[in-house]
Design a protein around this nucleic acid. Structure first.
Lengths: 258, 258
DNA sequence: TAGCTCAGTTGGTTAGAGCAGCTGACTCTT
DNA sequence: AAGAGTCAGCTGCTCTAACCAACTGAGCTA
């Protein structure tokens, strides 16, 4: 009766007091008093809120209103993808398609509308990428910056963050799961093409450039083999005990909508 | 040193044992034993995982591998939007733009590719919406079903779920924050137009239909006034105590990337 | 003045007890 | 024998009390 409520009440407290990101929340004892719950329950509620990015906890320092970034979503998305991958689903490909769908829909909107400053920055990033490719260094960070800079011009923070979140989730999973045999030069050329297309203002061409880029990644994904299994440790729990517990049963979803 | 680790280790346990959604996890005492932590710490870790949708807890029954739905993301996204709205940001509009961007990018892909069965279902939904509009009933549920059915044909569960999550977040916030004076007949006509465009296979027209539809919602949003403030209860904490706590300071983001 | 130590704040962790929801088997009634 | 009610024994939930660990700022020391 209390637990779900506590989270709700803490959130209400943040909204009611108009606390901005980074503002200090009451301390645990104060919350115990204010909410009329034990320290334990308060902490569990805070932990859950922390997992949602709503609250930020700093040991020996205090709890604060979180930056509400999408870091937790990245976490959940990445795990979902990894778990699905090991179960033989094409979850990684689906994640890639999600990114592609968003970027394709967006790039046409900013073709020809990007200010010269952003274009110059993208130029610099493309050059850096080429240099890194020549040196055999990792392109990942530059690739991330390229995509982030590209969509910054949309002037929608939420959109940018969601895109970056998807990028993060995809790359984290990709790094952990598959060894991608990539040709850096192709990647560089495709980024150049995206940039050129956007600069020229040709939205059709820009969309095609994005499609080619993702098509390339897609091919790399599909060429790598089946999931590589991790070691299976631990003993599976013996299912034959009495009591309240009902074994396996892929239980019906609880997504009751009100 | 333990807490962050515990979550990680529980996740590893799920992956290593290949537990599918709905599979039972070890009980709290078993986890205490397996992880070498106290009950409290285990519970806090589980609460965090629950908030991320990775784990599902049923009182008096057991803990299970979660459905990994986007319900938690909806929660976080909705809260972020509400908080931003009350701080005077146009967070709700940004959320709407996010939905529009995705749907615009996707609808062109399925123009002309939808099987007749799906088109028939969409027809039925559009009719239902018209009936509801005539009766003065709420269109929300039918609207949700329409959009969900539309993108089901993409055969990408992740994509569908993300879209539905965005829809849910948007409507929950809209319902809580603003009173939208909507003309149901316009909404119905626009859905018909989307359906017709998709059926005809004209992807340009489909994209325009989506843009019109969202443009309509956008107008409705902007006509409503400023944020309606909630009551401000409770006393702001006195900042002048000594000790470890540092007052306000919009702290620097901790998004250190590794 | 520069540096250190220490007190007092913060959250982190552990332990033990009892409460609450659920199931399956047992018992009593019909 | 069939049905309903009860109870034991699982499950997770909440509370209390104590101690540990991170951090800051004031005051002491050199």
């Amino acid at each position: 009766m209390a637990a779900r409520d506590l989270q709700e009440r803490i959130k209400k407290l943040i909204v009611d007091r108009r606390l901005p990101s980074g503002a200090p929340l009451p301390t645990e004892p104060e919350l115990m008093d204010h909410l009329g719950a034990s320290r334990n329950s308060v902490r569990e509620a805070l932990k859950a809120l922390q997992a949602m990015g709503i609250v930020e906890i700093r040991h020996g320092f205090g709890t604060y209103v979180g930056s509400m970034s999408f870091a937790p979503m990245v976490e959940g998305l990445a795990f979902r993808t990894v778990a699905g991958h090991y179960r033989g689903e094409d979850s990684l490909l689906q994640l890639l398609e999600l990114r592609e769908a968003m970027e394709r829909g967006l790039v046409s909107r900013l073709a020809g509308r990007l200010p010269e400053a952003d274009l110059a920055e993208l130029d610099a990033l493309a050059s850096r990428m080429e240099r890194e490719a020549a040196e055999g260094a990792s392109l990942a960070e530059t690739d991330r910056a390229f995509h982030a800079t590209l969509y910054r011009g949309l002037d929608n923070v939420l959109l940018s963050e969601v895109l970056e979140a998807f990028w993060d989730a995809f790359h984290r999973v990709q790094r952990d799961l598959v060894d991608v045999p990539q040709d850096p030069r192709v990647t560089c050329r495709q980024h150049r093409e995206i940039l050129d297309a956007v600069r020229s203002g040709d939205s059709i061409r820009a969309e095609e450039a994005i499609r080619d880029h993702f098509g390339n990644i897609r091919v790399r994904l599909s060429t790598t083999g089946a999931p590589r299994p991790p070691e299976t440790t631990g003993t599976p729990r013996p299912p034959g005990t009495t009591g309240a517990r009902r074994p396996p049963e892929p239980h019906a979803r609880h997504n009751e909508r009100v």
